[in-house]
Write a protein that binds this DNA or RNA. Structure first.
Lengths: 198, 198
DNA sequence: AATCGTTTGAAACATCCGTTTGATTCGCCG
DNA sequence: CGGCGAATCAAACGGATGTTTCAAACGATT
């Protein structure tokens, strides 16, 4: 769908049906014929994005690997998924847009994409911190790790202005994921010792 | 300015001059008379937000306090500033919007608001990690801490759906800031030992 | 080949938005 | 009071957008 790119780039309101249809090589009325109206097209795009979300995390997750290694792999894969601009760039952009400016599609989005991610990451965190850790601490840590990663998407224009010249190439994207993992593992290491049980 | 609220709530495009003027009790043409056009009004709102930004961080920063305590106070103050909805809620919302969907106003915004914050926080982080720490590590840590805090603004709709019933009252807002500080201090504690110098 | 339901096409329609206009009112100084 | 610039108001203009319309092209079935 080329409509996804336009929606991701311009937002729901700024995206015009005319631009989408001409960019897709289709007629203007085709949109209303197939999807009813503009909102129907948007819902279809969201649904497409939800189902096309390839299995995540990828197969590189050996269940027998130490939890720390799992977290590193998870961070790297997650950051790469939301930052790599090769395949479906609009996917994560649309999600970021929905977060800041939610429509009715956000509810479904949370349940089908975000909550599974959260549960997965939460499991890894709990594994690192130990089973005796309070659920609140696990949730706080999961939230902090997630925040560091989505920050690259949400604040990218700011980061580009704060540190111009910083590369956003696929190679350095992996570095960003590793940095998040390193910072988070450092935090979890201390938390496991001090506040593990209460 | 009631225009700021509308711009923050609807975004630049979705905000209509009609809604702003009627909500402000003024006439429609008054906007164009005083500000030239819609973009002029937006610039005025941004400028207002930039100058009305009260001195931050507040006076509670005793320069003789230990750096860890400074970070705690900073996180608490920052989260309170961007989340507390009593005074100028639209302020942070507008900033979050500019981040995800930048206009020409973002450049000025970064230099006048965000970079000072960054330098301040960066100084505290450097103080905690020690002078021998590499600038890259300081920057990564500063970025991670900032990410955790602005996450509350950027992903608030998602968090509300992930964990419904969670309070966002001023009292629990301070808890959120403390959680960020605790997680970050835990990370810095480990990083200071292991990767402090290289 | 004829027919009928489905899809595409260009143009028009209705609505909303930002902006302009011209008349009117207000505030003030002489 | 009278005059004058500034501010306000209702109304209208031009443009853009989502949607509709209706005719033309298509494709499978008989």
């Amino acid at each position: 769908m080329t409509a996804g790119e336009v929606f991701a780039r311009r937002g729901f309101r700024d995206a015009t049906v005319r631009e989408i249809s001409t960019l897709a090589g289709a007629n203007l009325a085709a949109v209303n014929y197939h999807f009813g109206d503009k909102k129907g097209l948007y819902s279809a795009v969201i649904a497409c994005g939800l189902t096309s979300g390839e299995a995540f995390p990828p197969a590189e997750f050996a269940i027998e690997a130490p939890a720390e290694e799992k977290l590193r792999a998870y961070c790297r894969a997650f950051v790469r998924k939301i930052l790599d601009h090769r395949k479906p760039e609009w996917h994560s952009k649309l999600m970021a847009r929905e977060m800041a400016e939610p429509t009715e599609a956000l509810d479904e989005m949370v349940e089908m994409m975000i909550r599974p991610h959260w549960e997965r990451l939460s499991g890894i965190v709990s594994e690192i911190l130990g089973v005796a850790t309070s659920p609140e601490l696990v949730r706080v840590a999961t939230r902090s790790i997630t925040a560091q990663m989505v920050f690259f998407v949400h604040a990218r224009p700011v980061l580009e202005r704060l540190f111009p010249g910083e590369p956003w190439s696929p190679a350095s994207i992996d570095e960003r994921g590793d940095e998040v993992a390193a910072f988070s593992l450092a935090a979890l290491d201390t938390l496991r010792r001090s506040g593990g049980t209460r």
